[in-house]
């Protein structure tokens, strides 16, 4: 097993009477993309800011790169080893992309050149553009560049795609996927299910300060996602009756679509045989559960695009 670059044990954070983080424990391994998934107010940013050493913990312990976040003498060592894209990243608006990245880089004893990082993130065209002239997606890319300029072991990305349009979000995803190829460990917080599922090796689902599920997306889906669903668009009534008689778990929606819950691959093939025999002309679609289904199953709610619970 890979080494744990982050080790969190029974971490607690309280604000007056509010327990924002409620005794969570987890480990992040070197070289993986670890997603902290949850709605707004779940405790994601609080946790990540404790790990970044800019927020004190109330209880428990947390180690980053082998150093204790609550020890003042260790904080300097941690800051040398991490790169951070904070939530709502901003930079000096009248400085250029290159100047802003250099500013962050110059805070470290050893760092990459701004040009290297700019090239890495495909920002060469915008290197001399003023930060305030950039689109939201480009600003986030500059933020990632600033997080990488110190050549960190561990990169924290706090809600890196919040507020971005779908195209810009995909661009940022490509950047994050590339970080893994560069051998960086990535700690990603997000409220986007798809983002966590596409990017993360492992996902921790956090709700009301507690981790309610932890594992790879496949593990979570297998454990909590439920059955696959075969959808036969506008299927004939007798087909629905046949399938119900043989397999059960069949429903027909108001559009006439037949939904069949499939337990395993054998069952799927047997259903397909029936469809083949009947020479059915309807469209057939196999729907697999997603992290969204996992979240729904565990918490009983969904997360909106804005990050709130429905």
């Amino acid at each position: 097993m890979a080494n744990g670059i982050i080790k969190v044990d029974s971490l607690v954070k309280e604000y007056d009477s509010l327990r924002a983080v409620d005794g969570i424990s987890f480990e992040v391994y070197e070289g993986e993309v670890f997603a902290f998934l949850g709605p707004n107010g779940a405790g994601k940013t609080t946790t990540v800011e404790i790990l970044e050493c800019i927020r004190p913990l109330t209880g428990g312990s947390a180690k980053v790169c082998g150093y204790d976040v609550s020890k003042e003498s260790d904080v300097k060592e941690i800051k040398k080893r991490i790169g951070v894209l904070p939530q709502d990243f901003n930079a000096l608006e009248k400085l250029s992309v290159k100047e802003n990245i250099s500013l962050i880089g110059d805070m470290y004893d050893k760092h990459l050149s701004a040009s290297e990082v700019i090239k890495l993130l495909d920002l060469e065209d915008k290197a001399n553009a003023k930060f305030d002239s950039l689109s939201g997606g480009l600003k986030q890319r500059v933020g990632v560049a600033a997080a990488l300029v110190s050549d960190p072991q561990l990169v924290f990305l706090d809600e890196p795609t919040t507020g971005l349009d779908p195209k810009a979000r995909r661009d940022v995803w490509a950047v994050i996927a590339n970080l893994k190829k560069l051998g960086k460990t990535v700690f990603l917080t997000t409220h986007y299910m798809e983002e966590a599922q596409v990017l993360a090796d492992r996902i921790a689902i956090i709700d009301r300060g507690k981790i309610v599920a932890l594992g790879s997306s496949q593990e979570l889906i297998s454990t909590y996602g439920g059955l696959k669903l075969l959808v036969i668009r506008k299927g004939p009534k007798d087909l629905a009756d046949t399938l119900q008689a043989k397999f059960g778990q069949v429903t027909v929606n108001k559009d006439g679509d037949i939904h069949v819950k499939v337990d395993d691959v054998d069952e799927l093939w047997r259903i397909m045989d029936i469809l083949t025999t009947m020479r059915l002309g309807s469209d057939v679609e196999l729907q697999t559960p997603t992290i969204e289904d996992v979240f729904l199953k565990i918490t009983g709610t969904r997360i909106t695009d804005e990050g709130d619970l429905t």
Binding site: E52, I54, K76, K79, K80, I82, V84, P86, Q87, D88, F89, N90, A91, L92, I104, M107, Y108, D109, A146, S150
Partner: peptide, 13 residues
């Protein structure tokens, strides 16, 4: 307000 001080505080500054 714009988070610039916070960003710099995340470095060894």
């Amino acid at each position: 307000r714009r988070g610039i001080i916070k960003r710099l505080s995340l470095t060894p500054l």
